[in-house]
Design a binder for these strands. Sequence first.
DNA 1: CGAGCCCGGGG
DNA 2: GTGTACGGGCTCG
Length: 828
Amino acid sequence: MELHFNPYDFEYRIEDGITYFYFYGRTMEGQKVAVKHRYAPFFYADASGIDKQEFEEKINCLVLKSGPEPAKAAGFEMIEKESQGRKQEFYKIYANYPKAVPLLAKEIQSWGLACYERDILYVHRYLRDHGIIPMKTVKASGAFVQDQWMRAPVFLAEKVEPQKSETSPEWRVLAIDIETYAVKKEIDFNHNPILMISFFGMKDGQEFRKVLTWKNTALPEYVEIVPDEGALLKRMKEIIIEYDPDIITGYFTDGFDFPYLQSRAGKHKVQLDLGIDHSEIIVHQSGFGETEAKIKGLLHLDMLKFIRNIFGKDLDVETYSLDAVSRALLGHQKHEVDLDQLSYFWDHEPEKLAEFCAYNLHDSFLAYKLCEKLLPDMIEFTSIVGLPTFDVIRMRFSKLVESYILKRAAEFNVLAPNKPENTEISRRMEESIQGGFVYEPTPGLYDDIIVFDFRSLYPTIICAHNISPEGFRCACCKDLPHVPGKEEYWFCSHGKKFLPAILEQLILRRAEIKQQIKEAKKKKEDTSLLDARSYALKILANSFYGYMGFYAARWYCLECAASTTAYARNYIAGTIAKAQQEGFKVIYADTDSCFLLLEEKTIEEAMKFMEGINENLPGQMELEFEGHYPRGIFVSLKGLKGPKGVKGSEKGAKKKYALLKKDGNIKIIGFETVRRNWSPLAKEMQEKVLRLILQEKVAEAIQYVKKTIDELRKGEIAADKLVLKMQITRELSSYSSFAPHVKIAGEMQQRGQPAGPGTVVKFIIVKGKGLIRDRAKIPADVSPGQYDAEYYVTHQLIPVVSSIFTVLGYSEEELFKESSQTGLGKYF
DNA sequence: CGAGCCCGGGG
DNA sequence: GTGTACGGGCTCG
């Protein structure tokens, strides 16, 4: 029989020595289903220049005992693949189970054969090789089989193929959020219980809202009261199973809610066996101390991960907090509550908990709304990359690009190069290239600024000039034009090479989508799906250049990256020169953008200039009008570091300016983002000063700074605006460097206050001599006016506003020197 | 300057 | 999970 279904979670299982790929999803009729399909893992070995007979005899009797099962080659065949632009023969070697692949490859490499695609995850390989797109419809041919373990019927497929279908199912989404006991922001998985769990969803057109808690008091109708924390966890499990979601979502659920739930469940010996096969929530370490949480048979989407890694890059937020992100994306914000009170009320005034239940529910609501809004985007990335949505939203750009390339490589019969070894990575990290061209602005305040930029500059250059590793310095094109400014570099112009070819498809596909968006808008149709598609294509295309220069890339090609920026510098320099010839004053240019002053010219003349540029550009390259700003401030770029690697060169071209938009809003670029080791005072000052100056209230801005500094020096600033925070991350004895926060933590411990790993230490710098650490004090010990005003002036306030005032011709001296009537001496 | 360390999100 | 790893900024020495 045939089964049509939409899968969203995947794994492999070994049953009686056979490796099966498992799909988990929902049938077109809405029934949850597991589909299994036999598929053998494999990798490739370079067959050139070896004694084939000897090799084949050796491989036939190869058995390695180091794995969980003896690793054996389950057969091999000879195939042809394209490697570095040439067709070549390889052995395709099958393994008896997935983890045998790296073991066998390592052994065979020791025989002197280069092995490839030996670290491609089995699940990923399966999806690519079968052209399966997660979330989209799949047709399986086979039959249902008996299985006592799964929470869904199991279908054994003989054959599996992707289906073209335009209708996408209504995914059933459940958002979840927990509140925990915590005094003074101290999060402690071991000692502090979960107080509340909220759920928000939409099932069969009905809103689902629920909060579980274990304090017996009068609470709103959506709150369900259970006897204790253990019961809370058990009830949560029941609710999720009954709701039967496809997608479970939340905010920082990878790093907080699920690990917390898992840890509390362990404490109460409650089985959170939510998996389709009754497995428990799986929390694993991923990367630099981060975790990710998985429930088998469900799709867990941590909205923070997608927003932080992929979607948030174009989002104008200063932190990725749920509050900031919800404001920016949904126009909603979090409920305002004092979370310190939750634990207090829990202990002393439970009748006041209703407010916190509402808060808890609202956070689930926000996560649900974020998921709902971004699901089209997450699904688009899934489609383009062809990997599970779970993985895709947790990837960084380099991995996303590489996954896209690997998918296309399978289609093009291109062999994937191996990841670099550690020694190779270190070598690559030493290498650097020149970045974008920066036309340094004359710092100042300007009126009527016109901004042009090249649309997708780097991607369009890579395509227009066929920049690729295989075509680098080819034998056939030596006499054709070379890369401008890189006379020893040229690229083959015979036939589109692999990377430019697949990149061009992204660009052309996006152009089509943009056309469709235009038409849909004319007809007043909803464009959100098309917008998502266009956005995904753009992000991916823009990441190709960075990928080629990324040290860990399989398709690393620093010469390609260097040539891309060389062409770009040439194009932007040409644009600047032409603008000047036509009598425009260019005030600033950076990589792909050019800022002109309108002065006595008209907008029409500026547009005419742009058209002139566009007549001479190759391929998909195009200069676009970005905007007209009534006023802007540019500050000096002093203190820049020289180019170092691709990233470093981007940093070298760092911009620092603020523009006033026609609607009165300001666009701030490149000024310090404020982190928790900046005082609240510094943050406040920077924003206010920029705003005042762009509104031409310079005198007022100076007045404000002087007044603030005056107050600071008089000791009138509230100490809480001066608090610096730093976290203790290990046992104090194991710190080798004795930083201020370590000293403070030591003092706290002496007083019997906890200051172990995880504690956020707060301190204020006070007057005195010596190193900063000698003058760091616990805020409670700081008497009014004892703080070191000069430290705050020089380390906090000057850094955030000095460049702004320097531009206007004010020296630091004038602004920050002590005024005569408020000398320090007064307070000593 | 390099080495070492901390930040993010979450209660 | 056929896992191994971010990027920026500050302080100390």
